[in-house]
Amino acid sequence: MNEKYFQERIDAEKKIEPKDWMPDDYRKHLIRQISQHAHSEIIGMQPEGNWITRAPSLRAKMILLAKVQDEAGHGLYLYSACETLGISREKLVQQLHEGKAKYSSIFNYPTLSWADMGAVGWLVDGAAIVNQVSLQRTSYGPYSRGMVKICKEESFHQRQGYEIMAEMAKGTAEQKAMAQDALNRFWWPSIMMFGPQDSDSPRSGNAMKWKIKRQTNDALRQDFIDKTVGQAEVIGLTIPDPDLKWNEERQSYDFGEMDWEEFWSVVNGNGPCNKQRLAHHKKAYDQGKWVRDAAKAYAKKQELVAN
């Protein structure tokens, strides 16, 4: 009975709210997806944080720092959205540290030059937006509302990233080379951010039926590629895919084979920075323990005084 009513609400495009009945698997799927999304925001602070102290101008420094701070804010919204499903932030962080919860593999790639700040903003945030715009219509209320808020800021980030790339592409020969190199390194990992091809995506079935997910991985990926190719052309950079070609009939770009072996290898922990990213997060968390303990102890003493 419950389940039938639940599906009817979903089919009628009504949002599911924290206190509504929901199937256990719906709850589990959401916790997995939202926490993965939250962890991605938080771990994603590292590759960009890597360049804050080296940003080449006062303006660049402020823009980058404000951006990374936004990511922290997104992480907060998403952890809060996830907590409405009955799991604490502490527990979610623990799952991350134990390797039970994942984050987007894109953040396991290193940022090696200032142009990478451009590439990450333009491509990684660009890909994230395509996904998140779609998720604004997701069936779970708190997640959907979080996405609306996040999308506004992300589109800003993408423009800032593109601006860095454009600036470097028209700069000195060295700058242009850095920009092209960044595009070469981030292109394939970015288009793999949408996940496995639909034919290999194990969880798509229920997610689509429950309208957690609104479009398939392949549809989102195609949308991103179609949007991005022209942007690269405008600033004179070349997308590193010899098979990329406009298909008149589909009104879309055809593109080359993705390296799924690399994708799964990074997902399973063997990317260039998997170990460092997690170690960095754990270290900050462990080093902050005495501060959190002190704040708790102080708050408790204040309560005693008040009573």
């Binding site: 990374v68 900050a284 959190r292």
Partner: peptide
Amino acid sequence: SEWCSNGPTLEED
């Protein structure tokens, strides 16, 4: 700015 991603809590970061 060196504290970014190293704070004791997300709020403090």
